[in-house]
Write a protein that binds this DNA or RNA. Sequence first.
DNA 1: AATTTATGATCCACTGTATATCATAACTCT
DNA 2: AGAGTTATGATATACAGTGGATCATAAATT
Lengths: 187, 187
Amino acid sequence: MPRQSRSIQKDARVRRTRDSLRAALLALVETKPFEKITIRDICAQAGTGYATYFRHYPDTDTLLDDLAAEEIAQLLAHAMPITMSVDSRAGCRALCQYVAGHRQLWSTLLTGGAASRLREEFIRQARLAVPDATPSPDWLPLDLAIVVGTSSAIDVLAWWLAHGHDLSIEQIAEILDRLVVAPMTKG
Amino acid sequence: MPRQSRSIQKDARVRRTRDSLRAALLALVETKPFEKITIRDICAQAGTGYATYFRHYPDTDTLLDDLAAEEIAQLLAHAMPITMSVDSRAGCRALCQYVAGHRQLWSTLLTGGAASRLREEFIRQARLAVPDATPSPDWLPLDLAIVVGTSSAIDVLAWWLAHGHDLSIEQIAEILDRLVVAPMTKG
DNA sequence: AATTTATGATCCACTGTATATCATAACTCT
DNA sequence: AGAGTTATGATATACAGTGGATCATAAATT
């Protein structure tokens, strides 16, 4: 268990170790499914001691959450304007542009072994980000719209990164808009 | 490793043991996430010996695949007519009716700890079930349509089973039709 | 009824998790 | 820059789960 002393947040060693562990997990997730990654794998990759791991994270799940949560918040920040704006196509284009700009990261997170875990975290954060009072069609409960909208947007982006190398940003933005956004808003 | 003798398929004991193991896993998946289920758990629940397990399945994944594959094929058989038929709403209604008729089973499989594993198997089987020559809108690659269509249909049904207790079959069929099917076909 | 073969009980080697201890190295603060 | 604080690595231990092997027994097939 990590000591909760007053300087644990500022100590350079702590930051270095945590950065090493995060980078190590990110690298390993590219090579094999998340479930197969052991704590010893992470420590070896990070160049840290085994017991040290537990001073920062109780298990592998927590590290992944720590790693993914902030990246997901970033992506979500780019996605939220879409439903608000009048021009949803422009919003989709901006979102796809952002993902393309971080292709390596999102390929790893969305198409690697951690994908299903990421989907859950995405939906969790999306539920928090969307206000309860947000209007939705009378035939479509808001919570279901959030779940399906988030999940299928992930599917589209993940497919693009994995199989859609020949599709331009404009093309995938059109698909995202017509397949995911429009059915929920133009209802 | 299971002996591949000539009678392993017919022997009543083999069938009984495998049914026990499948039923045991099905029961356990209701109580905790799939990843947390050990082979000893399954054997205890099934009332079989530990070593016996390995005569039938090399690991837990294989047993789950064995269990889920046939159920998925069933559900997919009910879902395929939707895109073919003229009246997609009726197809959606039939699909929801089937799921409602096996509510316990699908709640377990779609909303339990094995859900993400199931989604992958669904998409795998859907890819095999849809002929390559199936027409799709010019702006939407067929493979992406299969992936997103399958995945979001699962999301809708899973949400219905988990949170949508107050929605009727007719209502969820309308949602499935307008949110998932229509955007892909009426494009 | 005779033969074949699946089963259950037990044992083992191996891997990974989770924690504790302690000397050392590195950081923070004055 | 030096004193005090604290994270780190190395090492040891207890424990849980895996994948198999062996063998007497029970049950199925023929």
